[in-house]
Computed example of a mutant assay.
Amino acid sequence: MASTPVPGPGAAYVHAAEDETLTGEAVALDIQPLGFFLRAVGCLIDMVAGIVLLVAGSLFLTALVASGTIPDSALRIGVIVLIVAVMVVIPTAVETLTRGRSLGRWAIGGRIVRLDGGAVGFRQALIRALVGVLELWFTLGGIAAIVGMFTPRAQRLGDLLAGTASERTRTRPLPPSAPGLPPGLEAWAAVADVSRLPDRLAARMAQFVRGADALEPAARARVAAGLADAVAPHVSPLPAVDPETLVRAVAVVRRDREYRALMLENARAAALTPPA
């Protein structure tokens, strides 16, 4: 029976979820894998492009034979070379040169990467292409679909053997950074009491701060004045600022204090948890 290794002094464990990308330095990358449906669409596009190449190449070879440029005996060899080129050589070359991209993956916004997040090389691309002859071409994607439905990142058999996965290259832009404390209120923020602020009112303030720039000036001033009137009874001391500045300042102070409280709670919980 295999024994479980005992960690030495100072050893640490790194736990990674099945759908996380972990580098060699044990750093989890924030990479979004492509879903099963998008991978299937990209694969279908690539296969259609391959079929078009096969048909065009076959017509070209037939025309050469008909014109007497090449003998009839060379037609079968030419067809075999064409099939190998379309199914193995071209996918391997394209995937290697474009660092995991292809026509289908470009269309759906994805690419193939190694499991550690690095770009694929010739070896990974060749393995995927060779296995793809069976799971994509010979079974019309049947094996790839079955395997992809039961893997965390919708990996096909070629991915599992090559140690690769598919990631998104088109992601939503990050939201703008949260606004900071209005200038000149640092001393007030250090002593301000905002603990009595109701949660529902705090949520309304945060929503206003996020979308204030998109409001019309008149509507913006009206909403800020209403929020300031609702906030004033719950804040002490009350700074002598305009309504919008008050709302922004209170929202920042409450956010920062809630964040610090959360960090302290996590630190206490970590201190109470016995080491593994």
Rank of each mutant, 00 (worst) to 15 (best):
I146Y: 07
C43Y: 03
A192L: 09
G158K: 03
G163Y: 05
V48A: 13
V14H: 13
A11V: 09
A119M: 11
L29S: 05
A2L: 06
Y259L: 15
F150Y: 14
A270S: 14
P175N: 11
A2C: 01
D256M: 05
L197F: 01
F36Q: 05
D242M: 08
L227D: 06
T23V: 13
F138D: 02
T96F: 09
G121T: 07
I108V: 14
R200W: 03
I80S: 15
L29D: 07
E135L: 00
L246Q: 04
L75K: 03
R114C: 07
I112Y: 02
L215S: 11
L34C: 01
P152S: 03
L136R: 01
G10F: 10
A145I: 10
V131E: 04
L75H: 09
L201P: 09
L54Y: 04
E258N: 11
D159A: 04
T245C: 12
P71L: 02
A178V: 15
L126W: 10
T169H: 03
T23F: 12
A276V: 09
A162F: 00
R222F: 11
L136S: 02
P239Q: 07
D229F: 09
Q155G: 00
E25H: 15
A49H: 02
T245P: 10
A165T: 12
T21K: 03
D256P: 04
E25M: 13
G8K: 08
D72I: 11
D256Y: 00
G10S: 13
F122N: 11
S195L: 09
G110D: 00
A28C: 07
L29F: 06
V52Q: 08
Q32Y: 02
G35K: 07
G142F: 11
L160F: 04
P152W: 01
R101K: 14
L264W: 10
T62E: 09
Y259Q: 14
V65E: 03
L174K: 06
